[in-house]
Amino acid sequence: MIEKASALYDKTVTCPHCETPFTTKRIRSGSLTVAHRDSDFCTHFKEQALNPILYSVSVCPQCGFAFNDQFQKTLTLSQAQEVQQKITAKWTPKEFGSVRQRIEAIVSYKLAIFAAELTNQPHSVKAGLYLRLAWLYRFEANEAEEIRFIRMAAAEYEESYIHSDYMRTDKEMSEVRLMYLLGELYRRLGEFDQAIRYFGKALSFRNQTIESGILRMAQDQWQIAREEYKQKTGMESPQLD
């Protein structure tokens, strides 16, 4: 078991709203052991209390603005006014910069989602927040809330695909990876037509990508989605082109 004190470190960040510098905890890269990864990329660690997603949202103790590293670094005047009126004016100073339990991480994500909506962050940024919040609820075994936020994540990822903003904000998100992820999110929602459609889009990259692992996952999950579709409808699902 890794001691929290050795795995955590203080990082100084600057609030995009009030420009106050403050310290918040982060997890040292390489300090944790992966137990397994779910088919929607949710990573489980042997030391789940030190899962990095618990700490990926920073919450300004001064003004209440919550953000992650993908947020735009500056706010427009109108965005700053919205934050001032709807967050800061109602903010009671709280400390999120020390060791976090899951419940505190959940609160930090909800604060960041509200801030992202107010400041019109890219769809991919909002989608990532929704998905990670769903994972936190998965760790809590709260299926209803997990599914609720997976649905919101899928909607935002679709908007991100339409507007191509994932290309600017998420270095790890390629088009084939996004198609696979949308397929898997819709499969988890039980929307098998949509799932099969997006897995098909991912598999259409067979001769255009070096991400062979994603293609294998798309093939496997497409087959699972087809079986689930048949169980649900009693009919064969559409074939790939």
Rank of each mutant, 00 (worst) to 15 (best):
1 M>H: 08
1 M>W: 04
5 A>W: 10
7 A>G: 12
13 V>C: 06
17 H>E: 02
18 C>E: 08
19 E>I: 00
21 P>S: 10
25 K>E: 09
26 R>F: 04
29 S>V: 02
37 R>M: 10
38 D>G: 07
41 F>I: 10
41 F>Q: 12
42 C>W: 12
45 F>L: 08
46 K>G: 10
50 L>S: 04
50 L>V: 01
52 P>D: 12
53 I>R: 14
54 L>K: 11
56 S>G: 01
57 V>I: 15
58 S>I: 06
60 C>S: 12
60 C>R: 03
62 Q>N: 15
63 C>P: 11
63 C>S: 04
63 C>G: 07
66 A>G: 11
67 F>T: 01
69 D>L: 13
69 D>S: 14
71 F>V: 04
76 T>F: 02
80 A>Q: 04
82 E>D: 06
82 E>W: 00
85 Q>N: 13
86 K>P: 03
90 K>L: 13
90 K>Y: 05
90 K>C: 00
90 K>G: 01
91 W>D: 05
92 T>L: 11
96 F>P: 10
97 G>S: 07
99 V>L: 14
100 R>W: 02
101 Q>M: 05
102 R>K: 12
104 E>C: 03
104 E>F: 07
106 I>H: 08
107 V>T: 15
108 S>W: 06
108 S>V: 08
110 K>F: 06
113 I>F: 06
114 F>H: 15
114 F>L: 15
115 A>H: 09
117 E>S: 14
124 S>F: 07
124 S>K: 03
126 K>G: 04
126 K>D: 01
128 G>L: 06
129 L>V: 11
130 Y>R: 08
131 L>Y: 05
139 F>M: 11
140 E>A: 14
141 A>W: 12
142 N>Q: 12
145 E>N: 06
148 R>E: 10
150 I>W: 09
153 A>K: 03
155 A>K: 11
155 A>C: 02
155 A>R: 06
159 E>W: 00
159 E>I: 00
160 S>W: 04
161 Y>I: 05
161 Y>E: 13
162 I>Y: 13
162 I>A: 15
164 S>E: 14
166 Y>N: 04
167 M>T: 10
174 S>P: 00
176 V>H: 00
177 R>N: 07
178 L>R: 06
178 L>Q: 02
184 E>T: 02
184 E>P: 04
186 Y>T: 05
188 R>N: 08
194 Q>Y: 10
196 I>T: 07
196 I>K: 07
197 R>S: 11
198 Y>E: 01
200 G>R: 08
201 K>V: 02
202 A>I: 03
202 A>E: 07
202 A>H: 05
203 L>V: 03
203 L>F: 09
204 S>I: 07
207 N>R: 15
207 N>S: 14
209 T>G: 06
215 L>N: 11
216 R>Q: 15
216 R>S: 15
217 M>N: 15
217 M>T: 03
221 Q>V: 05
221 Q>G: 02
221 Q>D: 12
222 W>Q: 10
226 R>P: 03
229 Y>H: 11
231 Q>V: 10
232 K>W: 11
238 P>R: 12
239 Q>W: 09
240 L>A: 05
241 D>T: 13
241 D>S: 14
241 D>F: 13
